[in-house]
Amino acid sequence: MVETGRRLVELGLSPGTSGNISVRLGDRMLLTPTNESMGALDPERLAVLDLSGKHLAGPKPSKEFTLHRAFYRRTPDAGAVVHLHSVNAVAAACLTPWSESSAVAPITPYFVMRVGQTPLIGYAPPGDIAQAEELEALDLPFRAALLANHGSVVAQSTLSAAMNAAVELEEACKLTLLTSGHSPRLLTTAQAEELALKYGSYWGSAS
């Protein structure tokens, strides 16, 4: 977690004390503390919570622990969650979503392969449980979401995979913004679904 946090800061994806990461260990999760830069994490100072959200040990956890809990509850094989306030993801989360199932269009094969459909979760103040409840209850398979006017959240089997998917989502959001108003050529539904089936991501009927 320490190395992942440092890398996300180096990439410019976690300004100030924004963003948080977690890993699941059985029926518990390790989560970054509140108001601490992810570039300066201390392995001896990580919050420990159970999956009900009860704080068991360590410093006070990020107020956005409910997002992590929601993804672990809805995704049995998720081993890590990365939540970022990265510039392009936040900007894309301020736009009208591309579709009901994905805020971001299938603009590159790598976005479909590594991230998959990424719904937009409605706005709520940071830390508001309503947003986490919407994410947990959404009747749609996904491993990443944009949070309206807020940022991105990604769940994967490992922390490395979650970080890589979060970086890929940020790039897809950047391309979305760069091509806005230019009628970009997108992957067809059939092309996106073929990639999703091959690489184990989620897209449309291939979910």
Score class of each variant (00 low, 15 high):
Val112Gln: 04
Leu84Pro: 01
Ala78His: 05
Gly79Lys: 03
Lys63Val: 01
Ala132Gly: 13
Pro59Cys: 09
Leu135Asn: 02
Phe71Gly: 06
Ser86Gln: 00
Ala70Glu: 04
Pro97Ala: 11
Cys94Thr: 12
Pro126Lys: 11
Pro125Ser: 11
Ser101Ala: 14
Glu134Lys: 13
Gly122His: 06
Ala80Gly: 08
Val81Leu: 08
Val87Cys: 11
Leu135Met: 15
Asp128Phe: 01
Met113His: 08
Ser101Cys: 09
Ser86Tyr: 01
Ser99Asn: 00
Gln117Asn: 09
Ala132Phe: 06
Ala91Tyr: 09
Thr75Leu: 15
Pro126Ile: 11
Ala130Phe: 11
Ala91Pro: 05
Gly116Glu: 03
Thr96Gln: 12
Tyr110Trp: 14
Ala130Ile: 14
Pro59Arg: 06
Ala137Gln: 14
Ala137Val: 04
Met113Gly: 09
Leu84Glu: 02
Arg114Pro: 01
Phe71His: 08
Ala103Thr: 02
Ser101His: 12
Ala130Glu: 12
Ile107Tyr: 05
Ala89Glu: 03
Trp98Ile: 07
Arg73Ile: 12
Pro61Thr: 08
Ala130Tyr: 11
Val90Arg: 02
Pro109Asp: 01
Ser99Asp: 02
His83Asp: 04
Lys63Asp: 03
Arg69Glu: 10
Glu64Ser: 07
Asp128Lys: 12
Arg114Trp: 11
Thr66Ser: 15
Val81Thr: 04
Asp77Gln: 12
Val87Gly: 12
Ala80Phe: 13
Tyr110Gln: 12
Gly122Ser: 14
Ala78Thr: 04
Ala103Gln: 05
Leu67Ser: 06
Val87Pro: 13
Val81Gly: 02
Tyr123Arg: 05
Pro119Ala: 12
Glu133Gln: 14
Ile121Ser: 06
Thr118Ile: 06
Ala89Met: 01
Pro106Leu: 07
Met113Lys: 12
Trp98Asp: 02
Gly122Cys: 05
Thr108Gly: 02
Leu84Gly: 00
Asn88Met: 13
Gln131Asn: 04
Val82Thr: 03
Phe71Gln: 09
Ala91Asn: 09
Tyr123Trp: 14
Ser86Trp: 00
Ser62Trp: 00
Thr108Met: 05
Pro97Val: 10
Arg69Pro: 04
Pro76Asn: 00
Thr108Glu: 04
Tyr110Arg: 10
Glu136Trp: 07
Arg73Glu: 14
Trp98Arg: 03
Thr96Met: 11
Leu120Ile: 11
Ala70Pro: 05
Ala103Trp: 03
Phe65Pro: 10
Arg114Val: 10
Cys94His: 08
Ser62Tyr: 00
Ala137Lys: 15
Ala93Met: 10
Val81Ile: 14
Ala137Trp: 11
Pro76Tyr: 01
Tyr123Ile: 06
Arg73Thr: 15
Ala105Cys: 09
Gln131Phe: 08
Pro76Thr: 04
His68Leu: 05
Phe111Trp: 05
Gly79Thr: 05
Ala70Arg: 07
Ala92Ser: 13
Ser86Lys: 01
Val115Leu: 07
Thr108Leu: 03
Pro106Glu: 08
Pro119Val: 10
Leu138Val: 00
Glu133Trp: 09
His68Ala: 04
Met113Ile: 12
